[in-house]
């Protein structure tokens, strides 16, 4: 008796690792696009909005 391959389960299982790779690539791309510098410039100043006085 041959086992039936469950395609939807295979897709669900492979989506995680695939998205990890895409996410990591996006982080690296965003970093070199200059977004990390924007984050840094905002994060090194006290965020007045965050603490509720901005």
């Amino acid at each position: 008796m041959k086992p039936k391959v469950n395609l939807s389960k295979i897709l669900l299982t492979s989506a995680g690792p695939l998205l990890c790779i895409i996410g990591a690539a996006a982080v690296i791309f965003g970093y070199y696009r200059g977004e990390a510098a924007v984050v840094l410039s905002k994060a090194v100043m006290v965020c007045l909005e965050c603490i509720g006085i901005g």
Partner: peptide, 24 residues
Amino acid sequence: AVVGSSGFKFSIYAVGFLTLIGAL
């Protein structure tokens, strides 16, 4: 911070980070 900056209108960096951690 990135979405609200004048230089970028979408944050590939933050979305990528959330995707990486979320998918992991």
